[in-house]
Design a protein around this nucleic acid. Structure first.
Lengths: 214, 214
DNA sequence: AAGAGAGGACTGACCAGTCAGTTCTATTCT
DNA sequence: AGAATAGAACTGACTGGTCAGTCCTCTCTT
């Protein structure tokens, strides 16, 4: 084995260990931040929970702030993965949409502490240009708009600006996520998704009233 | 003038002064809390902004926490008033609904700092059973559900559980409020209200697709 | 003069971040 | 193989700064 190869191996081993530790710390930090809020989370407590020295945390993250933001990013990464996995292999566009909505609501229903983290991020770091959630939202939304456009062309959705759909539907989902978290006990994800789809697909007006309007 | 009457007058004068002071403090506190967040707002700074002593603040509010919560309650009171005023005198149910939606979005568009306060409340006082917003929401929602019920009976809205309407529409509004605040520059209140109403009234499906579904 | 109201210096608790010293790990030497 | 060594990783007591809430003093009102 050459010197460089040996060196690389050593680095990669320790790099792997480093990533593991980072994950450990992020996981525990996330729980504490969600439970106590950013300000009321003492890094000393985090160290004790992890059974490591406080200084060690600072070897992996330069500041409490950076640690928190890394935890928030991690949540968004997990969300994205969860939704992507759920629509994997579904071809019918409306079914894809339904699956994505259920995955979104389900993800945050299963992990209410992630919602708390999003709130904390926004409350503590107003200066950051854009909340993590919206950075992720933007890229995702493009894909959905393409879907809507093709459905309009296929005559399955009536002709309207696709932004209108993503704005209204996106807000409804975002609002539902928060409402669920704040109010605790809520209808099942399945029911909520169906309710949203029913209203957004069919509207609330009666047939008679529809004719009047248009 | 009797003794008791004089006494009552004196008390009412000083009580009036007290209320004025409270309002002054709340107004300034709200701005600071919204600007810096709860933890990063120093009561010393608040005192300086008001040109009063720090101790005086504590004569009116027993703690920083109580001060903040009073400010949050005040915002909700203002919101309620603003919406009530906007639907005053409108009789057509659909127009009432439209006016309320515009008033809701307009209120928070004009006062983004109020949104910040709602976020701060939730971030800092997770222990409070229910965020102020939802306490107010609950009472309001009842009134809207009655409206929907009568519209269903009149055959203007198709037959469906009224909770479905309030849940979806409420979430969409709540989500829109936050999205607007987080993303800054956004479409006008008028346009957003119209978009929401269009989707919620008519749905997004084409006529052909609607027939397939039902 | 008496009492309420206002002021702001002060105190004590708290906690992020540091750093000098210790332990662990893996490589080289014998 | 086992010892020796280098340096990376870890530790936790400590520091400096912050800030909510107090309390004694001064002022204004009646």
């Amino acid at each position: 084995m050459t010197q460089t190869a040996r060196g690389a191996q050593r680095r990669s081993v320790s790099a792997q260990r480093r990533v593991q530790r980072e994950e450990q710390i992020l996981e525990a930090a996330m729980q504490l931040f969600a439970e106590h809020g950013y300000s009321d989370t003492d890094t000393q407590l985090l160290a004790e929970k992890l059974q490591i020295g406080k200084g060690t945390i600072y070897r992996y993250f330069p500041s409490k702030r950076a640690l928190f933001l890394a935890a928030a990013d991690r949540v968004m990464r997990l969300m994205r993965q969860s939704i992507d996995a759920s629509i994997q292999g579904i071809t019918d566009p409306f079914e894809r949409l339904g699956a994505a909505i259920r995955a979104f609501l389900g993800f945050f229903a299963e992990h209410p502490e992630y919602v708390e983290l999003l709130i904390q991020e926004r409350a503590q770091f107003k200066d950051r240009k854009k909340p993590t959630y919206f950075v992720h939202r933007e890229t995702n939304i493009k894909r959905w708009q393409e879907l809507y456009r093709s459905l309009i062309e296929a005559g399955r959705i009536r002709n309207m600006p696709v932004e209108r759909i993503t704005d209204v539907l996106g807000s409804a989902l975002y609002g539902t996520m928060f409402t669920n978290y704040f109010l605790g006990e809520r209808p099942s994800v399945e029911k909520q998704a169906n309710d949203i789809l029913d209203v957004v697909f069919y509207g609330i007006l009666s047939d008679a009233e529809r004719k009047k309007g248009s």
